[in-house]
Design a protein around this nucleic acid. Structure first.
Length: 256
DNA sequence: ATGCCGGGTCCTACCCGA
């Protein structure tokens, strides 16, 4: 089974990239973030034609997530349960497939909106961890994947790319990521590649791609049932070199 | 420590991302 996550930075701009990538990589599940598209305008038909059943949660201009799957699934939640303003922003889809739960997340960046903006990010991550812990307590096989907007460690950003005050590297953000690990989730990329620089995002500006000034902020977290079956976990760097790319690349895991 | 790029929308000057 192959599952991937990709922040596409507008599905309308990236529809052809996604189709081409699906045909080459053939994931069973693809979790998209930053579709920037209301659900009624999401190009479901295009992906149906490639054999993928699609569920989109969207809003105008910002955020937006979607699930593409060639395996049967049911949608369980279209917003993070229990969050105070839980469906104000389109950041979460939770599905059930083959007895497992899969969460597609677009975590708030936390750098805009001052202290309340950062507090929203932390509250969102606390709520996510609480939800994951509930499912882990019941031994539900679980995958949490998406754009976390967190560089978990110092190998996860090119030196000098971000100041220590940035919401992507703040200790409070990293502590929320560790809470998910301590709850029993495995960071799939780090299970396969324990150390060294691995990036999933390169800014459009200042020659970030050319200089390999990247960040690792897109993650796939696996509960024990899945981590024991992990075969590979890789970012698809070549996507960043395509014409008109997203600033993020797909991250795919293969499970036995 | 960004807003140089690239997306969005109140269509055009701004907001937002990481």
């Amino acid at each position: 089974m192959k599952l991937a996550t990709w922040n596409v930075n507008s599905i309308r701009q990236r529809e052809k990239h996604v189709c081409r990538w699906l045909e080459n990589a053939e994931p069973d599940f693809l979790l998209l973030q930053e579709t920037k598209c209301e659900a009624t305008h999401f190009p479901c038909g295009t992906f149906n034609n490639l054999g993928y059943q699609t569920e989109a949660v969207g809003q105008k201009a910002y955020n937006g997530v979607a699930v593409l799957s060639r395996r049967p699934y049911t949608v369980r939640h279209c917003a993070l349960p229990g969050l105070a303003d839980d469906d104000a922003q389109a950041r979460y889809i939770e599905i059930e497939a083959g007895g497992a739960t899969i969460m597609n997340v677009y975590v708030p960046n936390g750098n805009s909106g001052g202290d309340p903006g950062f507090a929203y990010k932390l509250a969102w991550l606390d709520r996510l961890a609480g939800r994951a812990e509930c499912l882990l307590d019941e031994d539900t096989p679980l995958i949490v994947a998406g754009d976390f907007n967190i560089c978990p460690g110092d190998d996860d950003l090119a030196p000098g790319t971000l100041p220590p005050t940035d919401a992507l590297v703040r200790t409070e953000s990293r502590a929320r990521f560790r809470r998910l690990l301590w709850a029993g989730m495995t960071d799939a990329i780090r299970a396969i590649h324990p150390a060294g620089p691995i990036y999933t995002f390169w800014d459009y500006q200042a020659g970030a791609w050319r200089r390999n000034a990247g960040l690792r902020i897109d993650h796939v977290l696996l509960s024990p049932t899945f981590s024991e079956r992990l075969i590979s976990a890789e970012p698809y760097r070549q996507e960043r070199g395509e014409p008109q790319p997203s600033d993020h690349v797909p991250v795919m895991v293969e499970l036995q």
